[in-house]
Simulated assay, not measured.
Amino acid sequence: MTIPTQPGTNQSARTAAEVGGARIIGSTESFDRADGPGPFLMLSDSLEGNDVVNAAGEDLGEIKGIMLDVQRGRIAYAVLSFGGFLGMGNKLFAIPWQALALDIDHKRFVLDVSEERLKSAPGFDKDHWPSMADLQWASEVHSFYQADPYWRH
């Protein structure tokens, strides 16, 4: 998918993967609307709480936050909360931003991993966050999700 240089134009720029961004999937009719900033520009808090499903439609949890790489001016990760019961025992995962697709028709994210694979993903709990600036840790996370590290773009 190419990203228009300006909404409403047919010119194209680099693909979402080339710029390290999340793909946008769904109806293209909403791309040319002038009634709001989405889906190309969105408030990060409008994405928090969004459901995440896999390609089979299985529920993988919800977005708890968006992690920014302030020095590079990039979105690094979405923090996914998965498992547990009534918010207790949930495991958190740093999902590389470019591993996600934003499904604008269903207002959710799609992550191409099975529930079983996610259970074996590197995760953490709310009281013990990893050092996300550690490039070795970050490389392992990106490798797990088969995502090209955003800092190489």
Rank of each mutant, 00 (worst) to 15 (best):
M1Q: 10
T2S: 12
I3K: 12
I3N: 05
P4A: 09
T5R: 09
G8F: 07
N10S: 15
T15C: 05
A16H: 02
A16N: 01
A17G: 03
G21W: 03
A22P: 03
R23V: 02
I24E: 07
I25Q: 11
T28H: 11
T28I: 09
T28P: 13
F31M: 11
D32H: 07
R33H: 13
R33V: 10
A34T: 15
G36M: 05
P37W: 12
P37V: 10
G38Q: 07
G38F: 06
F40V: 00
F40M: 01
F40K: 00
M42W: 14
S46M: 03
N50I: 01
D51L: 04
D51K: 07
V52A: 11
N54W: 15
G57E: 14
E62I: 00
I63T: 13
K64Q: 14
I66S: 05
L68H: 13
L68F: 15
Q71G: 04
I75P: 03
I75G: 04
Y77N: 01
Y77V: 00
Y77A: 00
Y77I: 00
V79Q: 09
G84H: 07
F85M: 08
F85P: 01
G87S: 09
M88Y: 12
G89V: 13
G89H: 12
L92M: 15
I95C: 06
P96K: 02
Q98L: 04
A99Q: 05
L100Q: 02
I104K: 02
I104S: 01
I104W: 01
D105P: 12
H106I: 00
R108Q: 14
V110W: 00
D112G: 00
D112T: 02
D112V: 01
S114T: 15
E115K: 11
E115F: 03
E116K: 06
R117C: 09
R117K: 15
L118M: 08
L118A: 04
K119D: 12
F124P: 09
F124S: 13
F124A: 12
D125G: 14
K126C: 04
K126F: 13
H128D: 15
H128L: 07
W129I: 00
S131R: 10
M132L: 10
A133M: 09
D134L: 02
W137N: 07
S139P: 06
S139D: 15
E140Y: 14
V141F: 06
H142G: 02
S143D: 14
D148T: 15
D148L: 10
P149D: 08
W151R: 01
H153Q: 14
H153G: 15
